[in-house]
């Protein structure tokens, strides 16, 4: 079921997807990852250090962008390299809607060793929240 190297071309686009993130997701992510920085769950604290509101863990956004990558390849174990820069925070209001993160991607290079380079993008609230977001995946 895994994507094959032969099936991919430079310029091939990954299916764009939108993920919702609510305060509950951040609390669960804090527990699972061990990142209890209060800027991710405590509005009073976040504002006291100059942030607009509670912000999502950057790693939550990186994980959702990673889902777009691994659902596309079919095999999450194929990831060789995965790097992102967090260029803007995902601000998560205290309501039922939360925030949305929209992720897309495109194949940038096909390599002779059976890997491909993918560029991922992520936007939230009109801002580009990931920059220089690249992955190398090994395809069958």
């Amino acid at each position: 079921m895994s994507l094959r190297h032969a099936d991919v071309e430079v310029g091939t686009e990954l299916p764009e997807r939108t993920f919702r993130v609510r305060r509950l997701d951040l609390v669960r992510y804090a527990g699972a990852s061990g990142d209890f920085n209060p800027i991710h769950w405590n509005e009073r604290f976040a504002k006291s250090v100059g942030l607009p509101d509670v912000i999502a863990h950057g790693m939550f956004t990186m994980a959702e962008a990673g889902r777009v990558l691994t659902d596309w390849t079919g095999d999450p174990g194929c990831v060789v390299d995965y790097s992102v820069r967090f260029s803007a925070p995902v601000v998560v209001p205290d309501d039922d809607e939360g925030a949305e993160i929209t992720v897309g991607g495109k194949v940038r290079a096909k390599n002779d060793d059976g890997t491909v380079n993918v560029l991922l993008t992520a936007r939230s609230g009109g801002a580009k929240v990931l920059a220089k977001s690249t992955a190398v995946v090994r395809l069958a």
């Binding site: 992510y29 699972a32 939550f60 990186m62 959702e64």
Partner: peptide, 29 residues
């Protein structure tokens, strides 16, 4: 579950073994 990713290779040892892994694998992050 915290990243809402239902991929079976993370939770089902049978699916992970069918994919060639000794046991369930961890998400990239």
């Amino acid at each position: 579950e915290a990243i809402n990713d239902p991929n079976p290779v993370y939770v089902d040892p049978g699916a992970a073994k069918a994919a060639g892994y000794p046991d369930v694998i961890a998400p990239p992050t």
